[in-house]
Nucleic acid binder design. Structure first.
Length: 348
DNA sequence: CGTTGGCCCTGATCGC
DNA sequence: TGCGATCAGGGCCAAC
């Protein structure tokens, strides 16, 4: 499943290929893949057509491609700042406990009217891979994937025509055009671009633990206030982003923490050790994913990429714990499998 | 208000 | 060999 390392491999592959390219045509084969786009497919197509891609940025599992100002005539009228615009939805993301500002992008500043219109800070194509999404770079003439959902035809000044195919079996992934809002701390919104601007629908997502602006102490404090199990907290993208089921199990195994250990019982030392293991496993997977990457052909398969990693717990139920030799157990939890060593990882 | 359970979705795999 | 049942889980949201 695509988690932070897999999404970063996609971002790193897209960046050199699509930066500077013009989106010439957009084809939507599966409207459900636009679930996160506000507006119909036609709007999605119109908004993208003719615009230049300025880069590829990632925070956690979210990826976005900042766009040049709209080329569609009349699509970007100057915001009439004197006219108040109701902002029903954006207000929802402006209330949260203020002690966690540094790891979040929605830190309580009131949105300007022009931001609500969506064009004050520009727009971006937001991509989420969900469970099974892939972004594939292909030359014209290569056969279509049967699970092709969306296609962008690009023309890059340097590389010529190029196809960006969004392939997704389960349609949990999505693409959307969204407007950018400033990050409250003024730090870069994600990896890949220095701009402190983030898509509005990604603003509530926490910074990920590989982000230089991630604050360990804020994370520990917020974690200590949670009243839930540690794995649920690790999977909560509003608290810490980029971790999915696989790397959660792996980090918990490495730190010898049971998945249902109550967060309020974790000492700072155990939190620190767990966060260190999270960073280790994400970094190691990222390094492995990077080796299989081909600049000409982005082929990121979440399942096969993941299986190539050296896993200690995930998917190893019935096999022996690499540390103590006792069997790895699998329990159903949160509609997911949790894999752990019942001896090494006990609630305490 | 924070926390929690359920839902979405379909190709691959399993079991009879 | 065929076919129905089961599995996989990220993000969101209603409900508690």
């Amino acid at each position: 499943m695509p988690e932070l390392p897999e999404v970063e491999v996609v971002r790193a592959g897209l960046e050199p290929a699509v930066t500077g390219a013009i989106i010439e045509t957009v084809s939507v084969f599966e409207p459900r893949s636009l679930r996160r786009h506000v507006g119909p497919s036609e709007d999605f197509v119109e908004r993208l057509s003719g615009r230049r891609i300025l880069g590829a940025v990632r925070r956690g599992k979210f990826l976005w491609l900042p766009l040049s100002p709209s080329a569609v005539p009349g699509a970007v009228p100057a915001a009439p700042a004197a006219v108040p615009v109701a902002v029903p939805k954006t207000q929802d993301i402006h209330h949260f406990t203020g002690d966690f500002v540094e790891n979040r992008a929605d830190g309580g500043e009131s949105p300007a009217f022009s931001e609500a219109r969506g064009d004050a800070h520009g727009e971006a194509l937001v991509v989420h891979l969900g469970m099974s999404g892939q972004v594939l770079l292909r030359d014209a003439g290569q056969p279509d994937d049967s699970l092709l959902r969306i296609r962008l035809q690009l023309n890059s000044p340097a590389g010529g025509p190029l196809r960006v195919d969004f392939v997704d079996q389960r349609i949990f992934g999505s693409m959307a055009v969204d407007h950018l809002v400033p990050t409250p701390d003024g730090q870069p919104a994600g990896l890949g671009h220095p701009a402190a601007l983030i898509p509005s629908q990604v603003a509530h997502i926490s910074r990920d633990p590989l982000d230089p602006a991630f604050s360990d102490t804020r994370f520990f404090a917020a974690l200590g206030r949670r009243r839930t199990g540690i794995k649920r907290a690790l999977l909560d993208q509003n608290l810490i982003s980029g971790i999915g089921n696989i790397y959660a199990d792996e980090a918990l195994w490495a730190a010898r923490v049971h998945y249902d250990q109550p967060t309020e019982t974790l000492s700072r030392g155990r939190m620190r050790s767990l966060l260190a293991e999270v960073r280790l496993v994400l970094g190691k997977a990222l390094a492995e994913g990077g080796t299989s990457f081909d600049a000409q052909y982005v082929n990121v398969n979440g399942a096969s990429g993941y299986f190539s990693h050296s896993l200690n717990a995930y998917g190893r139920q019935g096999k022996s714990c690499p540390r103590c030799g006792r069997p790895i157990v699998r329990e159903s939890f949160m509609n997911r499998g949790s894999h752990f060593c019942a001896y090494c990882q006990r609630v305490r």
